[in-house]
Amino acid sequence: MTVPYARQLQSKVEDCQQLLSGFQSLEFLPPQASNEQGFRNKAKMVISGTTEQPTIGILDADGHGVDLRNCGVIAAPLRAVFPVIEQFIHDLKLIPYDVPKRKGELKHVILTLSDTGAVMVRWVLRTKKHFVALRDSLPQFLEQLPRHSVVSVNFLPEHKAVLEGEEEIILTRRSTLEFGLNGVPMHLRPQGFFQTNSEIAAALYRQARQWINDANPESVWDLYSGVGGFALHCAAEDRTVYGIETSTEAVEAAKTSAQAMELEDVHFKAQDATEFALNAGWAPDAVIVNPPRRGISAQLAAWLNESDVQHVIYSSCNAKSLARDLEWLDNYTPQLARVMDMFPQTSHYEVIVKLERKAA
């Protein structure tokens, strides 16, 4: 964080260029810079300390709380919610979870900010001891949150290093947090995934949409589609789009967006991306992949190589696995790449690559 931002960004470009140096055909477009601070739309905060003096932040190596309410990478509207969280911990006598002692109730508070200004607040509890108090305080809590906010309670009874459990109860009538990136309505449900930097996510979707529209395919698959960002942005008249994602929560959110946009030929399905491709029985003109850090599977790469897919757009948060996957996709020529600085003040970044099938 002591490195000037321009140098940070250049270092990321150089790192990506070095990792993808084996692809001589690849041209790098100018990187997409981010705001240096206040860019993070999500805060996953550990609650520790005491009811009277809670800490909201992370844990140190000994399991003690380190308060991060003033962390500069967190968006200011989210930081403004932390005093409200503390107030309700006091008023409702919520007992923070003590990790070393394995005692207490309130484990985490997970906050997400929409570009509309609304927030999603998820209280993560060990048991249902505080649930009634949180539910009954909802009207007072919502009075101190922006309009159209979403509040839920998640239950994590196990003592393990995860942020949330499987059971979630939404307290508000509104069940999704709505974003409006590039004029495209997108919905996030409590257990869904959304990019942590809305500005860069919007730029990422615009770049993919431009490349898809330049190719003008009649059919597109968005594999690992999440809440449907790429699929929704690439929808067009006379174009069939499928979004494939394992998370049923994300798929339901994507369907909500497609319905709001009245997109009749955009379809979302909850299924493993590799399984879908291998069993679909047909291939689209273009495929967008946005896999987790491990990259795509060898089976999916092999299927793409032998398919009739002409255009591939690969969005990656890990250039090392991307380099491996591009080696596997040797029937394609990587043409263009662009570093998107999704994670300023860290060594991490997103990169999007355009590939075209080699002539037979």
Results as ranks from 00 to 15, higher is better:
97 Y>M: 12
77 P>V: 05
210 Q>E: 06
223 L>E: 00
261 M>L: 15
359 A>I: 13
261 M>F: 09
93 K>W: 06
111 L>D: 02
347 S>K: 04
159 H>W: 01
18 Q>Y: 11
241 V>E: 09
254 A>L: 09
82 F>R: 02
214 D>P: 04
74 I>N: 03
22 G>W: 04
163 L>I: 08
280 A>P: 02
352 I>Y: 00
342 M>P: 13
188 L>Y: 00
307 S>K: 04
147 R>E: 15
66 V>F: 06
93 K>Y: 09
273 A>S: 15
192 G>T: 03
42 K>I: 05
290 N>W: 01
264 E>G: 14
97 Y>K: 04
189 R>T: 08
154 N>F: 03
110 I>V: 15
314 Y>D: 03
303 W>N: 00
142 L>D: 09
222 D>I: 03
154 N>S: 06
51 T>P: 01
155 F>Q: 00
177 L>Q: 14
122 R>M: 09
118 A>K: 01
285 D>L: 05
139 P>L: 08
27 E>F: 07
346 T>Q: 13
299 Q>E: 15
284 P>T: 04
192 G>Y: 03
314 Y>H: 08
285 D>Y: 01
241 V>C: 08
194 F>K: 00
200 I>T: 10
123 W>N: 03
293 R>E: 01
55 T>H: 01
147 R>W: 11
308 D>A: 08
284 P>W: 09
188 L>P: 01
144 Q>L: 15
307 S>Q: 07
289 V>W: 03
278 L>A: 07
283 A>S: 13
239 R>I: 07
151 V>N: 00
115 D>R: 03
137 S>K: 05
203 A>Y: 02
33 A>C: 11
289 V>K: 00
28 F>N: 06
290 N>E: 00
63 G>K: 03
310 Q>Y: 05
317 C>D: 04
204 L>M: 15
170 I>L: 12
198 S>R: 02
122 R>K: 06
37 Q>R: 11
185 P>T: 15
144 Q>V: 07
179 F>G: 04
73 V>K: 04
229 G>S: 01
68 L>T: 10
336 L>W: 10
320 K>C: 05
186 M>A: 12
135 R>L: 02
